[in-house]
Computed example of a mutant assay.
Amino acid sequence: MHEHEEMTYGEDYHYLPVTSIKSGAGQEVLPDLYCLTVQIVNVCFVGQPGQKNWVLVDAGMPHAADTIIEEAEERFGSGAAPEAILLTHGHFDHVGSIVDLVNYWKVPVYAHPLELPYLTGERKYPEPDPTVDSGLVAKLSPLFPVEAINLGHHLSTLPADGSVPHLAGWRWLHTPGHSPGHVSFFRESDRTLLAGDAFVTVKQESLWSVITQELEINGPPRYLTTDWKAAAESVSKLEALKPAVAVTGHGMPMKGDLLANSLEHLTRNFDILAVPEQGKYVQ
């Protein structure tokens, strides 16, 4: 990998005209956790407002860099740059603006080793499966970008010991299924979970639910999930942590009894609630 090698998006990366009523709205989940909805996906700012040491988790949809930078400066001060960008995984809606953000901020990006081929231009993701659900977002999924992006030498692997760079007190957990190197982030002290797409709090296949952000716990987005056995184990692993609050890649943050009960229900009935009845990735 040459130092001067340019970072690139996948060749099929383009603006997607899907959005929710919460798009552009930020929510302070905790004093040091802020969640911004970018069209249909969430990015997280972890760190105290006005402080220099903060990180960004995930990088939103294509063409969202200006929105993310603006929000960062509003929260952390003019010219504020994160110490790093952490990725739950490399699907287009989580890395859609990452090249622009890295070019602007000049910061490292961390991901799980198994996700690296999709982030270094080596391998594209499997094609989305529109047959998994009758919902319109599932039907539109063949339009979603799957080509690998290339972050070149800006990309590093998450530490093998489970620690999270620049986030003391947090650890990462390998939660595959939705993608091979999918990870979630957890802070033991207050049981805060950043779940990525291991589970989500909206029915992501349904355009109506996506637009209205109707709160309902669901397994990972079906049209891009390729390993349902691993996905079930990942949800079970996260439920065992008994999170007090969870921010997911899609949908609104969930906390307290609603989160505990919903997550337990999802874990116990994963095959019925999460796994599609048909589809090319269903055993």
Rank of each mutant, 00 (worst) to 15 (best):
A84S: 11
E70Y: 12
R75Y: 06
M61D: 00
T37A: 10
E11Y: 04
G79E: 02
A84Y: 08
E5V: 09
G90D: 02
G79T: 06
E71P: 07
T88Y: 04
P17D: 15
H63R: 09
P82M: 06
V43A: 02
Y15C: 03
P108W: 04
V95T: 01
P108S: 06
H91M: 07
I69A: 06
L86W: 00
P31H: 11
G26I: 13
L30D: 13
N53K: 08
C44Q: 12
G77P: 07
D32I: 05
G77N: 09
I68G: 00
H4N: 15
H63I: 08
H89Q: 15
V57D: 08
H63G: 00
A81Y: 06
F45T: 02
A80W: 00
I68C: 08
W105T: 00
E5S: 05
V102T: 11
E5P: 06
A80D: 09
I98K: 07
E28C: 13
Y13R: 05
G50T: 13
D32W: 14
Q48C: 05
I69H: 03
E74H: 14
A72W: 04
I98G: 01
G10L: 06
D100M: 00
N53Y: 04
G96Y: 01
V41C: 07
F76C: 09
V57I: 15
D93C: 03
H63F: 10
M61H: 01
E83H: 15
A25D: 10
E5C: 05
P62S: 02
P49C: 08
A25Y: 08
C35G: 02
G77W: 01
D58R: 10
G96E: 04
E73Y: 10
Y34C: 04
D93T: 09
V55E: 07
E5G: 11
L30V: 12
S20N: 12
T67S: 05
P17T: 05
C35W: 09
H94R: 01
N103T: 01
G79A: 11
V55T: 04
G26H: 14
T37N: 14
F76V: 10
